[in-house]
């Protein structure tokens, strides 16, 4: 039986956003901007050419609903997903991580405890690691998925990726949320406060926002994109590979 809180094609997007404001991040990653008027999920999906089932699955993730129903996805959906993930990468690298860096710098100016220097270095190192992770996906894995889609459609693709496979990506795919959670724990439990309560709160809110989004980002990669890419890989095995 459908419950009132279930997300369905006729649900008004605005109503969902009111209760789950992080959906705004999801919309940005789909390159959908506010206002959304009174549009239903069906209407939005039609306007932006997005598979409804996929949009509802993502919406449920952003509404904290656990589990992803079995999805019947196509090669076109793979492109929607890689575009969504690439836009998310820009949100992390160009918006939120620089903001976090700035707040940590401000915090170091206010708080002269010796540990603060280590926190700046800690986050700068993390930022470098995560940038390498995103670069790998943007430059290698996502173009590989594009290539799988081209193979599926029988169209040409500039690269043939004969020596690459999804399993190589799986080996390479590490957990990038650990250090964010570490930083939250340090700020909440251990780092001494000194004139920095306000900055610390802002920093914790930003860290929670990015941690929430990254968590869903990983689920989309691991539970939706990777299985779909493997399906496309198996369906269109290149002879001789």
């Amino acid at each position: 039986m459908k419950s009132k809180n279930d997300v369905h094609p006729d649900s008004k997007l605005a109503e969902i956003i009111i209760n789950h404001p992080y959906i705004i991040l999801m919309l940005e990653h789909f390159e959908i901007s506010l206002p959304v008027q009174d549009l239903s999920i069906s209407q939005i999906c039609e306007k932006y050419s997005i598979n409804k089932a996929l949009f509802i699955a993502f919406t449920n993730l952003y509404c904290n609903k656990k589990g992803i129903p079995p999805l019947k996805l196509t090669a076109d959906d793979a492109l929607t997903i890689t575009r969504f993930l690439a836009t998310s990468h820009r949100y992390y690298s160009e918006q939120i991580y620089p903001e976090i860096t700035q707040l940590i710098e401000q915090m170091s100016l206010q708080n002269n405890h010796r540990e603060m220097k280590l926190v700046s270095v800690f986050f700068a190192d993390y930022f470098k690691e995560v940038t390498a992770h995103f670069d790998y996906e943007n430059q290698i894995f996502h173009p590989y998925v594009d290539c799988l889609v081209a193979r599926d459609k029988g169209t040409a693709h500039k690269e043939n990726y004969m020596d690459y496979s999804v399993s190589q990506y799986q080996d390479h795919h590490d957990d990038i949320e650990i250090k964010l959670t570490d930083l939250k724990n340090l700020l909440i439990k251990y780092l001494p406060v000194h004139n920095d309560q306000l900055i610390r709160r802002k920093l914790l809110f930003l860290l929670s926002e990015v941690e929430f989004d990254l968590n869903i980002h990983s689920k989309i990669e691991e539970l939706i994109l990777i299985p779909l890419a493997i399906e496309l890989e198996n369906k269109n095995k290149v002879v001789g590979k």
């Binding site: 010796r114 280590l118 250090k179 570490d182 930083l183 724990n185 340090l186 439990k189 780092l191």
Partner: peptide
Amino acid sequence: KTGIKSVSGLTIYAVTQNLISLDDY
């Protein structure tokens, strides 16, 4: 116990608890 998994995060924790000094780091 600490909620911190990375070595670099644990290092900061160790400094806050005075288990190591910054000279050791």
